[in-house]
């Protein structure tokens, strides 16, 4: 599987309050999540992000609150890959459980700039970065564990569990992800 998109670049310690403000956690319906993605970090993101764009960030991305909407709003906006130096641990789980790949590569993060093109190849464990001048560099990333990849490949934890429980045929009034 290969996912290619434009880079949105952010710094260290981006927390879930700026990704999805707490004041929305009990009032916003899932269909509206994407409109508020990264609202208090980058107000331009939600309006301009395209399907398969890639978020690139520093250390501890997604630290703070356990709110799953932080991962869901990113997935709903069309993003399927986040590359960071490290991730907040609950956010990491929330990404996996919603089909977002949290990949770790400090070198790729240091090299990438906003607007560069980044491609993640899951089969080879390689990130390929193409900058504005057309220069191409590659960076390896450590593979995700088989249990994590099983969830991603199923499209998230709930879909995987439905398969396991034999309830896939039941209606799923689920969140619609951009690009799906």
């Amino acid at each position: 599987m290969q996912i290619t998109g434009q880079v949105w670049k952010y710094g260290d310690d981006v927390n879930t309050d700026v990704i999805f403000p707490g004041k929305y956690t009990y009032t916003l319906q899932p269909a509206e999540f994407a409109k508020h993605a990264l609202e208090d970090l980058d107000p331009t993101f939600a309006g301009a992000v395209k399907v398969d764009d890639i978020i690139v960030a520093g250390r501890n991305f997604g630290c703070g609150s356990s709110r799953e909407q932080a991962a869901v709003c990113i997935r709903q906006s069309g993003v399927r890959v986040i590359v960071a130096k490290s991730f907040g641990r609950i956010f990491f789980r929330n990404c996996v459980n919603n089909g977002v790949l949290p990949l770790v590569s400090a070198d790729a993060v240091d090299a990438a700039e906003k607007g560069d093109t980044l491609s993640a190849d899951l089969d080879t464990g390689t990130l390929t970065l193409t900058d504005a001048q057309g220069a191409v560099r590659t960076f390896p990333f450590p593979p995700l564990s088989p249990s994590v990849m099983a969830i991603i490949e199923a499209g998230g934890l709930i879909r995987m569990l439905r398969r396991k429980l034999g309830t896939e045929h039941l209606p799923m009034p689920e969140i619609k992800f951009a690009g799906e």
Binding site: S66, E68, I90, N94, L157, I158
Partner: peptide, 25 residues
């Protein structure tokens, strides 16, 4: 499904925050 579930370490329990889908599971 609360990040401060670490709290219960005060009484010697293992407490960890998780996401909403995981609670449903």
């Amino acid at each position: 499904s609360d990040s401060h579930t670490t709290h219960y370490g005060w009484l010697g329990a293992f407490g960890a925050g998780i996401g909403r889908s995981e609670v449903a599971a």
